[in-house]
Design a protein around this nucleic acid. Structure first.
Lengths: 115, 115
DNA sequence: TCGCAATATTACCCTATGGCTATAAACAAC
DNA sequence: GTTGTTTATAGCCATAGGGTAATATTGCGA
């Protein structure tokens, strides 16, 4: 899987409220599939599907405990999502919109030969 | 649009390499639709669709310049995505996996009455 | 007003997502 | 080995995503 595909899978996985809730739950520690089913009005297969998408993105991993398959949150994919986001930080931290307007004004001025 | 729906739209928008490339391009300043079409081997309608999804998420805004519709990056949605991500930072910054194993061990010990 | 340039919209593919029910498979425990 | 528990898989449906080509719209400019 390329890095881009990994990011695709991660953002797709994060784009669903059920899956974000599952991740939030997993912050408190491992959970079995049934424990993850309980809080939702969804069938067990539906939750299993969600877990599979989280797993595909590397957001969670699974171990084995008899017939149980505990799910655990994994940091690496989240870290990569955060790293992708990092360069954009200045877009919201600085007043990027105005900065861009300024650039636009300068370009306009150049075009019309006022510089 | 609820905050959850906004996050949905944002993560869906970020889950495509073409749209991420468009955002990267917009870091250098506004661009018209045609300017955004050029770098890709995609039709103009395809790019327009992508822009629409970015716009729906609030990741970009559009202005008007004659028949052109310049696209500009917007920080707010990215900021919210970042804020969603923030609580998970400790998952990758600390050694969260081991911390979780430890929690698991403690729970096991309690169940088996060894505490 | 005519024609061109930039963008949007429509109609149509195919595939993936998100949900369900029903069933299978894995394993423990008796 | 039969039974119950936990999880996975299969099959089905409806909707959305990502792409296309063709066409409509909008606005400039001669």
């Amino acid at each position: 899987m390329t890095e881009s595909e990994r990011l695709d899978a991660t953002f797709i996985a994060l784009a669903d409220p059920t899956r974000r809730a599952i991740l939030a739950r997993l912050m408190q520690g491992e959970a079995t599939v049934n424990e993850l089913v309980e809080p939702f009005q969804l069938s067990q297969p539906a939750i299993s599907k969600h877990i599979k998408m989280l797993e595909r993105a590397g957001l969670v991993s699974r171990s084995r405990d008899a017939q149980r398959r505990p799910v655990k949150i994994e940091g690496e994919a989240l870290k990569q999502a955060n790293e992708w986001l990092a360069p954009y930080r200045k877009v919201w931290e600085t007043n990027f919109a105005r900065l861009d307007d300024l650039l636009g004004d300068l370009q306009e001025a150049q075009k019309s030969g006022k510089n």
